[in-house]
């Protein structure tokens, strides 16, 4: 740019309906392209800049937004508007996201997305609920044992497929009565639950079927007396159709307009991974 003619961005109200629409599309992008953890919902738009039309047209929205974790796992097909935000007393988790979204011809394209999530501080949870259990590390031995026990109980009462663990998503150590509360995702395998001898030999079905479990596993009473009965509740989601990988097509012309179809979502991401665009919404 010539001297003194710097590119200027516009200051827009964060609660402007157009900005909110862009932010909602950005959060939707995150929810659709995560394979682990929970769906997030928009909480606050922190900053917005709108960059002027480029030579190609359209304008770019640069957003900083805060999100909150809902109680729906990302594999749960429930629309996020129907998912509850996790209340502070259950140890809420916040997302902090940066987006760049192109708006062109009324369509929104996420050019860049980066989110980090972090649980609320112990002090803040204590302020609203002094006795509420805090989030426990997912690699805690007691947590792993509780998940194993819960999954075993679920499979023992399941007359269909054997379900195997996909990921542990949250855990809390409950002091009174002593118990471990866990939430985890599961997936159906080609083994029959009642007949499994070696779960390691079971394979995920081609037509994926996921589920999500919540369980409270009580500490066993010494001496074998009657204790609290463990509670395991799993919701199995509808099967997901097999995704066919695109095959090279020699008849496809190499020139002309680019396909409007969005590229495939990224492969499974490791825990704590950041989702980075570009991708079409």
């Amino acid at each position: 740019a010539p001297p003194g003619v710097g590119l200027a961005y516009g200051q827009v109200n964060c609660d402007d309906p157009e900005v909110e629409q862009v932010a909602m599309a950005a959060v939707d992008y995150i929810n659709k392209h995560r394979s682990q953890g929970y769906k997030h919902t928009l909480n606050q738009i922190d900053k917005v800049k709108v960059w002027p039309p480029r030579p190609t047209g359209g304008e770019v929205f640069e957003l900083e937004i805060d999100t909150l974790e809902t109680t729906c796992h990302v594999l749960d097909p429930t629309p996020v508007v129907n998912c509850s935000v996790r209340p502070l007393r259950y140890h809420a988790v916040e997302g902090d996201c940066d987006f760049r979204v192109l708006k062109q011809d009324g369509q929104l394209f996420v050019l860049f997305a980066k989110c980090d999530s972090s649980p609320d501080s112990a002090e803040d949870v204590r302020k609203v609920c002094p006795d509420c259990p805090l989030l426990a590390p997912l690699n805690n031995t007691g947590v792993a044992n509780a998940v194993d026990a819960a999954l075993e109980a679920f499979n023992a009462n399941n007359s269909g497929s054997y379900f195997q663990l996909v990921e542990i998503t949250r855990a809390q150590i409950v002091p009174l009565p002593p118990a471990t509360y866990v939430e985890f995702a599961v997936a159906a395998t080609d083994c029959v639950a009642k007949e499994v001898t070696d779960p390691a030999k079971c394979n995920l079905l081609a037509e994926k079927q996921y589920g999500f479990c919540r369980a409270t596993i009580y500490e066993k009473v010494l001496g074998g007396g009657p204790g609290n009965a463990d509670e395991v509740t799993c919701t199995v989601f509808p099967t997901q159709p097999v995704v066919l990988q695109p095959q090279p097509d020699t008849n496809t012309p190499t020139s002309g307009a680019a396909s409007a179809a969005p590229p495939p979502p990224p492969a499974n991401l490791p825990a704590g991974a950041k989702v980075v665009g570009p991708l079409v919404v």
């Binding site: 200051q11 827009v12 109200n13 964060c14 609660d15 900005v19 909110e20 919902t41 928009l42 909480n43 606050q44 738009i45 922190d46 900053k47 917005v48 805060d66 909150l68 935000v85 502070l88 809420a92 988790v93 916040e94 609320d120 803040d124």
Partner: peptide, 27 residues
């Protein structure tokens, strides 16, 4: 605006464009 001497002109409510409203609660 025309005001009497010694009386501040009302500036109206201060609109802060950002950050926007909190939809649920602040963490």
């Amino acid at each position: 605006k025309v005001v009497q001497p010694g009386v501040d002109a009302a500036t109206g409510p201060l609109v802060r464009p950002c950050p926007g409203r909190i939809r649920h609660f602040k963490v």
